[in-house]
């Protein structure tokens, strides 16, 4: 059957057009024979998002970004995208940019809202979460990071230097290890030379242990009686200690009363009034005696010797 040139050319163009459309949808990861749902969102920062980047829900690619432009009214970034029409995007959903621009893997992620909510209509708006540019953030923090890295590298160098000194041929650690090795060698030689003596000593210890066991078996009754007596003594001692505890408590109480100035003895120890009175009495008595020695007649003029004796 011979076809005209018009039919050949027309069929070729149609087939090429179909291949082109299906190929583009295939590499956009869109269903080949199903429609798409057009939506919009607004972000504070595009973070490298460009048309063609994929749109994902829970990590699954469901569409792609169509347009990214500045919204002059809000100075935000208006992003147009489409998703598979078979996936309802409920109201309350949120969009955010993920991925890393430097690796060329920026994506628009959608966090779906409650499934009970009504579906966002064609051309509808999905709220965007506040996003930050990862590269810009890294750039801002770079000086601080570099300082910290410098500090860490300096510390590591210092530690390595110390380690080198510690592990050096003339270091203390090296000397200690050599000394330990010498000691181990000496110990080894000693063990080799004294092997017979050590064996003999172990045999003696075994013999002594056997004798002790024999002794223990033969004097078991005596030992039981001695332990019983020791227990009784311990019980008496415990009783004595209880009495001593009571005595100590009484002494503590007595000392407490004395410290608090309770009772005669407490007042004597804590009240200074008696001291002062006694001191005053002694002073007065001293004055009287002095006066008596100076002027005995003053006290004896009215007395006769006979009266005195």
């Amino acid at each position: 059957m011979k076809y005209s040139n018009e039919i050949k050319v027309g069929a070729t163009i149609i087939i090429a057009t179909v291949i082109f459309i299906l190929g583009v949808r295939y590499f956009e990861d869109l269903p080949l024979f199903r429609g798409t749902h057009q939506l919009e969102t607004e972000l504070s920062n595009a973070a490298g998002l460009i048309p063609g980047n994929v749109v994902r829900v829970n990590g699954v690619v469901v569409g792609s970004v169509d347009a990214v432009r500045i919204n002059p009214q809000t100075n935000g970034v208006r992003v147009g995208f489409h998703v598979d029409s078979g996936l309802p995007i409920p109201e309350g959903s949120r969009t955010m940019v993920s991925g890393f621009d430097a690796l060329g893997v920026v994506r628009l992620d959608i966090a779906l809202g409650p499934a009970d909510n009504p579906r966002i209509p064609e051309g509808g708006f999905v709220e965007g979460r506040v996003t930050t540019d990862l590269v810009a953030e890294l750039t801002d923090r770079a000086p601080l990071l570099f300082d910290q890295v410098d500090e860490i590298v300096g510390n590591v160098n210092a530690v390595l230097g110390d380690s080198r000194v510690l592990l050096g041929s003339d270091s203390d650690l090296q000397g200690a290890l050599l000394s330990a090795r010498r000691s181990m060698t000496t110990m080894d030689n000693l063990l080799r030379t004294q092997q017979a003596n050590i064996a003999s000593a172990i045999e003696n210890v075994n013999g002594a242990s056997g004798s002790f066991n024999t002794f223990m078996e033969g004097n078991a009754d005596s030992l039981a009686a001695a332990v019983s007596g020791l227990n009784a003594t311990m019980a008496q001692l415990e009783s004595t200690l209880d009495g001593l505890d009571g005595t100590t408590a009484a002494i503590d109480e007595l000392l407490g009363k004395l410290n608090r100035g309770e009772g005669t003895l407490g007042l004597l120890l804590n009240d200074e009034t008696m001291y002062h009175r006694t001191d005053s009495l002694l002073t007065s008595l001293q004055a009287l005696i002095d006066d008596f020695q100076v002027n005995p007649g003053k006290y004896l003029k009215e007395m006769r010797l006979v009266d005195l004796f």
């Binding site: 190929g23 590499f27 956009e28 990861d29 460009i50 048309p51 063609g52 994929v54 060329g104």
Partner: peptide, 15 residues
């Protein structure tokens, strides 16, 4: 890998 870096403008540019 092809999908990761595919941009819809690429085939349009080729056309």
């Amino acid at each position: 890998g092809a999908r990761e870096f595919f941009q819809p403008f690429d085939p349009v540019f080729g056309l």
